[in-house]
Design a protein around this nucleic acid. Structure first.
Lengths: 365, 365
DNA sequence: TTGTACGCGTTATCAG
DNA sequence: CTGATAACGCGTACAA
């Protein structure tokens, strides 16, 4: 705050070189008026070709770049959007960001990134973004459980929730289809002859945990296979839990031939736990993870078959939808993006490798 | 491009509500002039207290937010900086970002994030940022090997390289002190009585690999311990290499009591490899990693002692230095931020645990 | 104590 | 074909 007040007085002092040239500098250099230069540079109006090229050369020589601030002020649009990441960002937000960015970049839109660690920061950031006249806002999260929508009373720009879900029905939320992801795993296991399946997953409080389980159950039920309640183990999102749970499962009763895990971390723990009590993966027990977190999934022994939530694509979709909304199409509701299965060695006996890679994913509500 | 041209014609269409109120709306609502409202809101000039509060109330009621674009145009400063991430961002860039953001946020500066996947994108992004009148630019990388500085001919805003190093001596680069990090590991091992040390690390092409090795060697040499050349193993940055190298090392000659690894991934592979050939960690062989990548280091068995490059702090420093440069202090050179050692179980026999955690880190060139 | 006028850099309109 | 003028929203001398 202090710096702002001071800023009104202080000279920004000596930058590397002279300040950036304006359109007037180009006008002076060519002996024309600012208006004419503008037309020449933007290909508007009727000008003598020679004049046009003379202007272009001068602009290039002076390294003139039109001041976007001035443009935006006039157009009442900044070609800028804000991305709020609820709390600090981790491995989920990253691919989502990249997707958003790539989608927006194609429309020549720049991205403000804000780290909203709590509600207060979130509000402040939103206001700062609105003051900067952003054309839209994307809110990203770390989990899909519904959260209250941005509490800004007179929000006059579109908002998309990406890998986050807003309560109420007025907003547009884009999240992975966790249930369909669970079904993907179920189908793959059934396809490879597994029938006695267990599920090691995260805490019950997560909506994703419930949905993945639901998908697994339904996928199995569709083929008449049941998932006994005592073969579903909830615990923390930690590798150690995966290890522990897998051991428990196989030590208390051995009639299990597959484990679907709620994350790659859990799955990695599971394959380690199994190997260490002499259970072969995938020969005795197949294992499937979730996330396709490559550094985990590929380093596991054996490498993990896993459900990929396509987060980059999710981000891209969020960006694209936001663009549409900016162009005036109002949208709302919850969009669930299909997951896909990435098949590696943890789920197929060697002879089966390469057989039956699942379809990219059907869209299931 | 097409959208921009069209944009000059199309109406931004129906947003949620009416457009954002301007200072004129407040003026009209209070029956005052725009100038007076400005003064009232900014605490400048001499006004009747009653008038001031009347304006404030009206502003609040209308949810007036001054248009930052207009302000910036006037002040010739946007209170905005651009952050370029060379190529896609991973686990290194993230803490760096957060640090930058936090430092800048305290100065009320917002952050444009740009994903510069190649040189062309980088150039384009820099130009876009300059056109948006950013006050400064931070360039982040994934490795510290020198790279050419931004090739923008008339760059009139300050630039800082964070977790990246620019060739030449004109720029300011902030990178971890990898050599000091290596020394930290050496000292810790010596302190715990280890003398027969090996080093498993990444490809020789990385400057960080050379520096960490150098630090290790020097730290050992300071106490008269040598590191035989055939106990330094270079390989890919993969867990599998760590596993393989550790096994090789101990199978060909058993007189080793500690391994310093160039990354936590390698270290994790190493502890697994060792355990599986019956070598106890840390009782028989101590292991130290690098990065303090918590999800790796904590899940390893045993959890890894590791060198933390303090990337968040590095980012924060980059942000702070940039602020100074924006305020007119030119800076240049290479700043190496000290690493610190995080002690967990992989390096100390149980009886020693908690003893001799190293100092937070001296600054060593 | 308040209002007026100007400028920031750009574009669009209208006059020449 | 080109130049002058107004406007975008704000802050701030200066005039009233």
């Amino acid at each position: 705050v202090e710096r702002i007040v001071a800023g009104s007085v202080d000279t920004p002092s000596s930058p590397q070189t002279s300040a950036a040239p304006t359109i007037h500098d180009v006008a002076r250099a060519t002996g024309l008026s600012a208006g004419t230069v503008s037309k020449a540079l933007n290909g508007r109006g009727h000008l003598r070709p020679e004049t046009r090229s003379r202007v272009q050369q001068a602009a290039q020589r002076l390294e003139f770049r039109p001041n976007e601030l001035a443009k935006s002020l006039l157009r009442k649009r900044s070609f800028t959007v804000g991305v709020l990441s609820s709390d600090t960002y981790g491995r989920f937000s990253l691919p989502v960001f990249r997707g958003i960015e790539d989608a927006l970049e194609e429309a020549q839109i720049a991205t403000f990134l804000c780290n909203a660690r709590d509600d207060r920061h979130e509000r402040d950031h939103v206001h700062a973004l609105l003051a900067k006249m952003v054309d839209g806002v994307v809110v990203t999260g770390r989990r899909i459980d519904p959260r209250p929508p941005l509490s800004v009373r007179n929000l006059h720009v579109p908002v998309v929730y990406a890998f986050a879900q807003a309560t109420g029905n007025d907003s547009l939320s884009i999240i992975p289809d966790d249930k369909q992801g669970g079904m993907l795993a179920a189908r793959h296991l059934l396809l490879h002859g597994r029938r006695r399946i267990a599920h090691i997953t995260g805490p019950q409080g997560f909506q994703a945990v419930g949905l993945r389980l639901e998908g697994l159950e339904r996928g199995l039920a569709d083929h008449g296979v049941e998932l006994p309640a005592n073969q579903v183990l909830f615990g923390p999102w930690e590798e150690g839990w995966g290890r522990h749970a897998a051991r428990m499962l196989l030590q208390r009763k051995a009639d299990i031939d597959a484990v679907f895990c709620g994350s790659d971390q859990l799955a990695r723990g599971a394959v380690d736990g199994l190997r260490e009590i002499g259970v072969r993966v995938p020969d005795d027990v197949a294992v499937i993870g979730f996330d396709n977190w490559e550094v985990m999934a590929k380093a596991a022994r054996p490498p993990l078959t896993t459900v990929d939530a396509n987060l980059y694509h999710l981000g891209r979709t969020a960006g694209t939808r936001l663009l549409r909304m900016i162009d005036g199409d109002p949208e709302s509701g919850v969009v669930r993006m299909p997951c896909r299965l990435v098949v590696r060695e943890s789920s197929e006996t060697p002879s089966q490798l390469g057989v039956g890679a699942s379809p990219a994913g059907d869209v299931l509500t």
